[in-house]
Structure formats: C-alpha cells, structure tokens
C-alpha cells in the first residue's frame, strides 16, 4: 500500500492522517477524523449531503481526493457551531422549520454559508438563495422553509455585521 501522510486542518485543528491516494475527503472526514456530520449518499456530487467548506468554499467532499487538499483548511458542520453556540444559519433552520429528516441539512447549511460568505453582509433575494442551494437535494421540505431559513439568517448576519 502506498499510504501517505496528509496534513489537513479540520475545524481549526491540525490533523496528520495516513491516507491512501484514492481516498476521498469524505472518507477521511468520516472514517479517519470522525466528523460524522458530513453525510454520505450519491458519491457523485449530485446530492450535496457531503458538502464541506474547503478554504471557506463549499465543495462536494465525495469526489475530492483527500491527497489533493494537503495543507488546506476544511470546515464541517461541527466547525460552525455547537448546541450551545449555534451559528445564525443553524438557529434559523430550526426556527423556520427547515429541518425534517435532517440528512441534507449539514450540507445545506454549509452550501448556504459559503454563498453568504462570498459577499459579507449581503441580503440575497429568494431566487438567489434558490440558485445557490440547487446543488444540494432535499427530499423532505420542498425547499421553501430552507429558503426562509437562509434569508432569515442572512438578515441577522447582515444586521450584526452592521452593528459591529
């Protein structure tokens, strides 16, 4: 086996992981680092449940070779908030009833975060939100309440940014 060491920062913590060249970032996050909030489904970048942030940008971890992210910083759902300190997106998803089975939700929240972070303080239209999350499938909600949640969170983030 031609295992190599991967240096990767996940949610602010440095990790050294022995990986095989064909392992995807998803496999490394779930099987080696234990970030189970990153979900697994289609493995072909069609459903979006595996979405994480790579240097701040949403990507499908299921088709990214882990060896390609040497030295990069990855943020998973566990890295943006916890039950005591929810991220505004996490808070809004609960409040707006945007969560049903929840399996797509980590990916959905990170997809939205990446989009909102592109233009700090932005208040995107519902159509812009719709477009931004189109790469993450949700079979439960019909998306309306997810769009509500992203819009609500964007408003709050913009407001708190303006205050600072």
């Amino acid at each position: 086996m031609n295992r190599k060491i991967l240096n990767i920062v996940v949610n602010g913590e440095s990790h050294q992981v022995l990986i095989e060249p064909h392992w995807t970032l998803l496999q490394v996050l779930r099987n080696e680092i234990g970030m189970m909030g990153t979900k697994e489904n289609c493995l072909e970048a069609e459903c979006g449940v595996c979405t994480v942030l790579l240097d701040g940008k949403a990507i499908n971890s299921c088709i990214l070779l882990a060896a390609q992210v040497e030295g990069c910083s990855v943020t998973t759902i566990e890295g943006i908030g916890d039950p005591e300190h929810l991220h505004p997106l996490q808070e809004a998803f609960i409040e707006c009833g945007a969560v049903q089975c929840g399996y797509c939700i980590p990916g959905m929240i990170l997809t939205a975060k990446s989009f909102l972070d592109e233009n700090p303080g932005c208040r995107p239209s519902r159509d812009e939100i719709r477009e931004a999350i189109a790469g993450t499938l949700c079979r439960c909600t019909g998306y309306r309440k997810i769009i509500d949640a992203v819009a609500t969170a964007a408003d709050r983030i913009a407001l708190s940014g303006a205050k600072q």
């Binding site: 970048a45 979006g48 979405t51 790579l54 940008k57 949403a58 990507i59 499908n60 990214l64 997809t111 990446s114 989009f115 477009e131 931004a132 999350i133 189109a134 790469g135 993450t136």
Partner: peptide, 12 residues
C-alpha cells in the same frame, strides 16, 4: 458557467 452543476462543483 452558472448552469454547470451546483455551487459546490463550480467552486472547484
């Protein structure tokens, strides 16, 4: 560019 996959694909 904006109709290729989702944002996740277009970011990489």
């Amino acid at each position: 560019a904006s109709v290729v996959g989702g944002h996740q694909v277009r970011n990489i």
